[in-house]
Structure formats: C-alpha cells, structure tokens
Design a protein around this nucleic acid. Structure first.
Length: 258
DNA sequence: AAGTCGATCAACCGCCAACCG
DNA sequence: CCGGTTGGCGGTTGATCGACT
C-alpha cells in the first residue's frame, strides 16, 4: 500500500520510507525540532525533499498520532464538521472578511477537524472521509439526527471497517490526553466557532506565560506547526501542565517547561 | 488455486497564503 | 510594493491487501 521507492531527477528519494529513514527523521526532530523543513533533510542526513519529511512526520512519525479505527463519535464529528465547513473552507479568509486578524489562525477543513480529534491527522481524516464517510452523506443532504444516531448509521454500503467502528473505547480521550483545545469550551452554536479558536490561542499563550519565562526569549522556539488549530501538543499531566514537546527537546527544554 | 476487482491509505502534486528582506 | 521562500492545504495517485468469483 506504499509507493515503491525511487530517485527523482534531483537525486532525492521518493516513495515509501525505509525504517532507517524514519529513524533518522525521528531522531533529528526529537533532538532539534523542525526549525526549517527545507533545510532539515540535509542536516538529518536524508535524501528527501523537505515536504516529504514534513508529511512523514506529521502523518506517521509523530508520537501522538493515534492509529486504528475511527470511533462512531469521531465519525459523527467529522460528518458534522464537514457539513458545516465544506471541503475548502479557509479560516484565514473568513477571518479577513470579518476584519478579524489573528496570526496563526490559518486553517482549513481537515486540519480544523483534526484539531478536534486528538491524534488524528488531517490526511487520515481526509482519507477516512473519502473512503467511508462520504458514502454516508448523500450530496446536499443535511446531517440529520438519524446520521448522528449511532444505531441508525447505515447509509451506503457497509464497509469492513463499519463493524469495527462500533468500538468506542478510544473516545473520549483519557484525562491525561486532554488537550488545550478541549479545555477551552467547544462552541455548540457552530463547530466553526471563531471564538473557540481565539480562546485556544490565548490558552496556549497563557500557559507559556505561566511558565515564568519570557516566551520571546526562548533560544529555540517550539514549533506550532502541527498544532495550529487544536493545540493538542500541549498536554496536561496530573500535576498541572506539561508540554507534549518535552519529549522532543533536550533536557534544557524540559527544565524550561517545568 | 488463480484471477479479478474494489477498498485502503501512504505519499505525491500543485496551488495558495503568509512571511521576510 | 515586490519577489522569493516556506509551510500547509485539498485533491489525487498508485501499490497493496482482502474479498469474491
């Protein structure tokens, strides 16, 4: 199910990733972070383009990526949010039209949805939508209560995963997996909820401020690339707050966070 | 057992917006 | 303001798997 590896005209590898490549990328990012995707492969010793590295990390190597079947709650949320957002919704455009300026609030449908589903990547959600969920929702058909009802979700041909989707043990996430986005209120008025996004931004910043260090003085700013909407990278522990990034940076970073 | 076909999903491509000098 | 760079997104591809005939 993976593309065979090959070398492009620039001498860069394409296609499936080897275990060695995965290890190189994972080790490098865990040690130094991803400060520049374009430059990263050179420093990590990889013959890959930066985009390929980014995609591999985001969709596969990230330690918080949750694999496995989607629960019915996750399916329903995806359907509901897709219904509201459509395929090409771009939050920054909406923000602009509302004269609403928020840096780092640049997202679109799949990433917004993935922000609400901790551990799920936008690519995974997109694939899941196209292979399973899109069959459930007929064109121009609003998401009815029937669709939202687990027992009555039977539109379209049943896929083999439909049987497994009844498994809901992974939802909701455990308390230790609660992300910042979930700590802030999720608007029921609209899944889109600009306020929700804004609150999430503030929440993240507040945590940085609470840490007692000057956010802007950090020598190596933790990258927010893969939590731009859900801020799921900021996980709580039993004793307060603790950045998920702690694992990914060196001891100094952990000390700073603590 | 062998062939066919649809489903799956990792990976790629092209485009666009933000950022920066 | 402009052009180059970078990151991120939606859409699509293609190899593989499993069900079916």
């Amino acid at each position: 199910m993976v593309r065979s590896a090959s070398i492009d005209k620039n001498g860069l590898r394409k296609g499936s990733w080897s275990i060695e490549e995965d290890e190189k990328l994972r080790n490098y990012i865990q040690k130094y972070g991803h400060w520049n995707w374009r430059q990263l492969p050179k420093f990590a010793g990889l013959s890959r383009c930066g985009k390929s590295c980014r995609l591999r990390w985001m969709n596969y190597l990230r330690p918080d990526v949750k694999r496995g079947d989607f629960s019915e709650e996750e399916n329903n949320l995806i359907i509901q949010m897709h219904e509201e957002l459509g395929n090409k919704y771009a939050l920054n455009r909406k923000a602009t039209s509302l004269k609403f300026s928020l840096q780092h609030v640049t997202s679109s449908t799949w990433s917004i949805i993935s922000g609400k589903l901790p551990g799920r990547t936008d690519n995974e959600i997109k694939n899941h939508w196209h292979t399973n969920l899109s069959k459930r929702v007929k064109p121009n058909q609003p998401v009815s209560s029937e669709v939202m009802n687990e027992d009555s979700v039977s539109v379209g041909a049943p896929s083999k995963s439909d049987h497994k989707e009844k498994n809901v043990e992974n939802f909701p996430p455990s308390s230790q997996e609660i992300s910042c986005s979930e700590l802030s209120s999720v608007s029921n008025d609209s899944v889109l909820g600009m306020n929700t996004v804004a609150e999430d931004c503030v929440s993240s910043m507040e945590i940085f401020q609470d840490s007692g260090s000057d956010f802007w003085d950090l020598p190596f700013l933790p990258d927010n690339d893969y939590n731009q909407d859900g801020y799921e990278s900021l996980f709580l522990t039993e004793d307060g707050y603790m950045s998920f990034y702690a694992y990914a940076y060196d001891a100094d970073a952990i000390d700073w966070i603590q």
